[in-house]
Design a protein around this nucleic acid. Structure first.
Length: 245
DNA sequence: CCGGTTGTTCAGCG
DNA sequence: GCGCTGAACAACCG
């Protein structure tokens, strides 16, 4: 569920409820979720992995973390963290992190950092990367301040597609390679979106959870790398460790 | 049935 | 105050 493109799919699915009035609020959240009762949803937004349900004076911020899920007009045998009932149907959110934002999301979020946003700004991402020359590229791609919405699958696939070794430092990458990386994070994320919608995402994985490099056929390396210590799949032959020796 | 994870925050420590 | 580590959360797949 969690990566940015999946949140975009959710945002599309809930569009019929935009402008509609919440008739009943339930859930096991300890927050004052009843505030939504009787109010109209003014908008659904997303920023990276955050899903936002906006009302005129506050916003629900939902983060699905690793295990969160949602059901629309369906329920399962556990209590939702948050359930919003409308005359037209029900939105159920399970096992997610819920927060209530009292400020306008526009003042809280840098939309230019959202890899799925129309406001995505690759130049801003480049500046942020250049400011962190010591960072490992495997960590930088997961940095939500730079690539909001990028997750571990996107990281692994993008580093393979751009043939960058995950332990390369940002400062060692030539500027054209950094630009290519930035471009590919967004480009792959939209491939992810289309494949996920078509239920063929896994079929297109080149290295994530894979054993053999599809290009040179040698075994892939699987290691936990970087400060993020996340599972990383890469080909030691095809992916270049910068600086090049 | 167990092991592992598309993620993040926070406590505890040196 | 910092950076680092590990725990906690909690559901589903293979």
């Amino acid at each position: 569920m969690p990566e940015g493109p999946s949140i975009v799919i959710l945002k599309e699915l809930v569009q019929p409820y935009k402008g509609k009035k919440v008739t009943e609020v339930t859930g096991n959240s300890k927050l004052p979720i009843g505030r939504a009762a009787g109010k109209k949803v003014t908008d659904f937004k997303s920023w990276g992995k955050h899903f936002l349900i906006c009302f005129d004076d506050f916003t629900f911020r939902i983060h699905f973390l690793l295990f969160g899920s949602y059901l629309i007009n369906e329920e399962k045998n556990t209590t939702p963290r948050l359930s919003l009932k409308f005359r037209q149907g029900t939105l159920n959110f399970y096992s997610c992190s819920l927060k209530i934002l009292d400020e306008d999301p526009d003042t809280l979020y840098d939309w230019s950092a959202d890899i799925m946003s129309d406001n995505w700004n690759p130049e801003a991402a480049l500046e942020k990367l250049i400011a962190r020359p010591e960072a490992l590229v495997c960590d930088a791609v997961l940095n939500q301040d730079i690539f909001a919405g990028a997750g571990n699958i996107i990281k692994n696939e993008v580093l393979y597609r751009t043939r960058i070794h995950p332990l390369s430092t940002i400062g060692a990458l030539p500027s054209n390679k950094l630009k290519e990386l930035i471009h590919e994070v967004r480009n792959y994320s939209f491939d992810f979106l289309e494949w996920k919608k078509a239920y063929v995402l896994k079929k297109h994985w080149l290295v994530h959870t894979k054993q053999i490099c599809p290009r040179c056929q040698i075994p892939l390396i699987r290691e936990y790398l970087g400060k993020t210590n996340r599972r990383t799949f890469y080909c030691a032959n095809c992916q270049v460790l910068y600086p090049v020796a």
